[in-house]
């Protein structure tokens, strides 16, 4: 039985076991490589995507459990880099190796949907589960502030 999913506003079907983690369905079945594998245990945040407006760890999310949900990945922010978070990340030149940054942006996107004008404390609390091994945290915080308050596409219906 194929699984019916809505990813980045597109209805798709994948032929995968329902217990396959969403991360690997995105990467290996749908070819959406922006979402990254880092730890497989929900401890690093590199695989963060948004499901119905909430940031979730796709490495621990059974794909069968998100049938019918609205799933947004980094590719769904915008394909051309025009989403306010992508622009802020570029302008601040956040990335070092860049491997964690898709997950960072997705957590930030969920935060800004809930809290359009977050304080430093709001940001630190929301971003606590996203590791950056290169240590770009100060720039991530700056980029989130820069993007805050701008109009963004809705992450839930």
């Amino acid at each position: 039985m194929p699984l019916k999913l809505t990813v980045n506003n597109e209805a798709v079907q994948v032929d995968a076991a329902p217990d396959t983690p969403l991360l690997w369905v995105l990467r290996e079945h749908l070819g959406l490589a922006g979402t990254k594998y880092g730890c497989g245990v929900g401890a690093c945040g590199a695989c963060t995507v948004i499901v119905d407006g909430r940031a979730v760890r796709s490495c621990l999310t059974r794909t069968g459990s998100v049938v019918g949900s609205k799933i947004t990945t980094v590719e769904g922010l915008s394909a051309d880099g025009t989403h306010p978070l992508q622009k802020a990340w570029d302008e601040v030149d956040v990335a070092q190796c860049g491997y964690c940054q898709a997950g960072q942006m997705m957590t930030a996107a969920a935060l800004l949907e809930q809290t359009p004008h977050p304080t430093d404390a709001d940001i630190e609390s929301a971003m606590d589960g996203n590791l950056c091994r290169c240590g770009t945290y100060a720039r991530i915080r700056e980029a989130i502030h820069r993007a805050a308050g701008q109009r963004m596409p809705a992450l839930r219906d």
Binding site: T73, V74, L77, D93, A95, G98, Q101
Partner: peptide
């Protein structure tokens, strides 16, 4: 101050890494 040349591809989730 020069931004990373890979920023556009990186921030839109293009294939860049070994994985």
């Amino acid at each position: 101050f020069t931004k990373g040349v890979d920023n556009p591809a990186l921030l839109t989730g293009k294939r860049l890494f070994g994985i």
